[in-house]
Structure formats: C-alpha cells, structure tokens
Design a protein around this nucleic acid. Structure first.
Lengths: 151, 151
DNA sequence: GACATATAGTTGTTTAAACAACCATTCAAA
DNA sequence: TTTGAATGGTTGTTTAAACAACTATATGTC
C-alpha cells in the first residue's frame, strides 16, 4: 500500500538480486582461480553435508531451498565427480542417504576460506550495524514469502 | 579480516541469495496467476525497454547485468513471443536495436503493478529505515564486486 | 589504403532451475 | 488386509547462465 519504497531502477535490481548474483559470480571466479573445480550450486550442497554428513535428498532440498528434481541432478553431478555417494537407507527404502567422499571432506577448509574471503570482499566498507540490519531485512523477506500466497 | 560477521548458516544464505530467489519465485508465480506468460528474465529485459525503447543488445547487457550470449537468447525468445523486434541500425551495421511491440507496450502497466505488489508482500513488516539501509548495503556489495578482483 | 584491434552479436556446450508427470515405498484408515 | 493418500525420488521439457570460440563490422594507425 504505502510501503512502496522503490523507485523504478531500484525495484528491478532488488527483485533480480544483482548484489547476490554478483557475490555468486565472484565466489565462482575465486573457486576457479584456486583451481577448485566445483560450481557454487555444488558447493552449496557440500556446505550442508559438511555441517552434517549423511542427509537424505529431501533434507538437502529443505536446507538449500531447492526442489526435488534440482537436488536429484545436483547429487547426480556430485556423484559423477566422486564427491558424494548415494546410500540406500535400510529403515526406509525410499530414502537415499548422501555421504561425503574423502575428497569432498578435504575440500571443506579451503572452500570455506574462499567463501569467507569472498564475503569480506563483498562487504568492504560496510559497517557491522548495517550488516546486521541487512541480514534482518533479508530474513524478514524470506519469512514473508516462505508461506504460499494462496493457501 | 576482522569483518567476518557471518556465522556458518548465514554465510550460505547470504551468498546464495535465498531472499532474492524467494522474491523472484513469488514474482513469477504472481505473473502466472494473472495469466502473464512471461518469465522474470524476459520481464527484466522488457522493464528496461519500457524505460527507454530502442536499445542495442549491448545496452541491454549493461542494464540487466547479463553477458552478450544471455541477451542474444533472451531477445530470441522475446522475438518468438512477438514482444520485441530486432532492427538493424543504419549507422552501425553491427548493432541490433531492440524495439517493443504493441503487445509488449500493453504489458507494462499490469506487470509493473504486479511487481510492485510482490515487493510489498516481500517487505511487509520492514520499516522504511531498514529498507534504506538494506538498499545501501546491497548497492555497496554490488559496487565492491563490480570491478574485477584481478585487473 | 592495409592491417591490427576493438566492438557487436551469434553459436556451442555444460550446468542448473522450474514445473509436470511419473514410479516405488510407506503409512493410515476402513 | 486392502486400498488410498502421502512421501521420497526420478525423468522429461523449457528456459536461462556462464564461458569459450566464432563472424562481421568499425576504427585507428602506419
């Protein structure tokens, strides 16, 4: 209603997320420069497996905000790269548990360091207070849209 | 170095832009519910042509933060949908000028209204002050990363 | 004017997202 | 216990992003 804070040019870049795509591109570039041959999407899956190894594909869907087909194919590609392995669950034969390989475990430290440096590049000159507020806004936006508009 | 404000879980969602992907998904959904059969990527190109009709593909690249192949294919698809037309420039025969069709001109009002409403849904409960700061942070991030890290 | 270089755009390939349709297994209810 | 719904995952299709390699035109320099 009266909450329309966006002039034309700003509306576009807010919606299309030019800042977050810029971060993603820079991270991909930094991976490449360090001879890490994974995509940021693959990295985002590994990221959650590093936090907790052995998750079902559905858990990875929830963690990464992707749908099931997307995770199926990301896991396909990670398996081709020998970074993860699908293991059929004994309890529930519908479930694939995804486990990290030794190689993937070794990627953790370096890639997290690169991600952290990338974020520092991105946030240069931004104060802690501003970062806190930006985080709150982005979280609020996510929460506002999490629930479907038509129930 | 000491600017590392991000705990694990937050780093991931900041980099992968879960908020902006959520906005993009909601906008796409709202287009669909209003029987607007365009993608958000196509909309983002039209958006800049509504601001100024008759731009070269290179200008659209700069405006939408996409590379040349991406714009070539978006314009291909928009042309198939009869929403834009490529017109060879008389001054410089390398250049295609892109012009809106009558149909595309008629999409402007409705789609901008939907985009604006979508942003309002997204920003519910966020104060004007917070929005201003979030905008500043995102702009700063974009500026920080605009210049290549290795010149 | 001839040649190198820059600019504008296209094509090919790989990776991924979104959506629909589908199969297999499990669970719940009659 | 059988049947119907829910859950977990896969496959097919369209759209798009990123990157490399390419063609055509324009420009600048000798």
């Amino acid at each position: 209603m009266s909450n329309n804070q966006f002039k034309r040019g700003e509306l576009y870049s807010f919606i299309t997320g030019k800042a977050s795509t810029a971060i993603a591109r820079r991270l991909q570039k930094n991976f490449k420069q360090n001879n890490l041959d994974i995509t940021i999407e693959q990295w985002s899956v590994l990221y959650h497996l590093w936090k907790e190894d052995g998750q079902s594909q559905q858990q990875l869907c929830d963690a990464t905000f992707r749908d099931k087909p997307s995770i199926t194919r990301l896991v396909d590609n990670l398996e081709k790269l020998q970074l993860v392995k699908r293991v059929a669950s004994k309890d529930d034969r519908r479930i694939n548990m995804i486990y990290l390989s030794k190689e993937a475990q070794q990627l953790q430290e370096q890639s997290m360091e690169i991600a952290s440096q990338t974020l520092n590049e991105a946030l240069m000159g931004v104060t802690n207070g501003q970062i806190e507020i930006a985080k709150e806004v982005l979280q609020k936006v996510y929460d506002n849209l999490k629930t479907p508009s038509t129930p």
